[in-house]
C-alpha cells in the first residue's frame, strides 16, 4: 500500500508525521523545522495558484511546495 503524504490532507485536517524521506538537503531542512515522527501537521492555507500550501506545526506556519511536501509521510 502506498504511504499517505501530507499532500493528501484536506485543509484543516490534522495528520501525524511518520517519517521524512527524500533527498538529503530537503530532508534536513524539514527535520530542522521539527518535522519528526509523531509531529502533528495541519495544512491551513493554499496559495492562489494552488501550490504551495502552508502547514501549521509546532506553533509555526510554514509554506512548503507540493513536491517537497511529498517527502512528508504520514501515519
Amino acid at each position: 500500500m502506498k504511504e499517505k503524504t501530507v499532500n493528501e490532507l484536506e485543509l484543516g485536517e490534522i495528520g501525524v508525521v511518520s517519517k521524512i524521506i527524500g533527498e538529503e538537503n530537503i530532508k534536513r531542512r524539514l527535520l530542522d523545522l521539527g518535522l519528526i515522527e509523531g509531529t502533528d501537521i495541519k495544512p491551513v492555507l493554499v496559495s492562489p495558484s494552488g501550490d504551495p500550501r502552508a502547514f501549521e506545526f509546532r506553533g509555526s506556519l510554514i509554506a512548503i511546495r507540493e513536491e517537497d511536501a511529498e517527502n512528508i509521510k504520514l501515519k
Partner: peptide, 11 residues
Amino acid sequence: MPSSFVLELPP
C-alpha cells in the same frame, strides 16, 4: 531545478 521552497509565514 527550482530548489525547495520552505518559507515561514511569521505572525
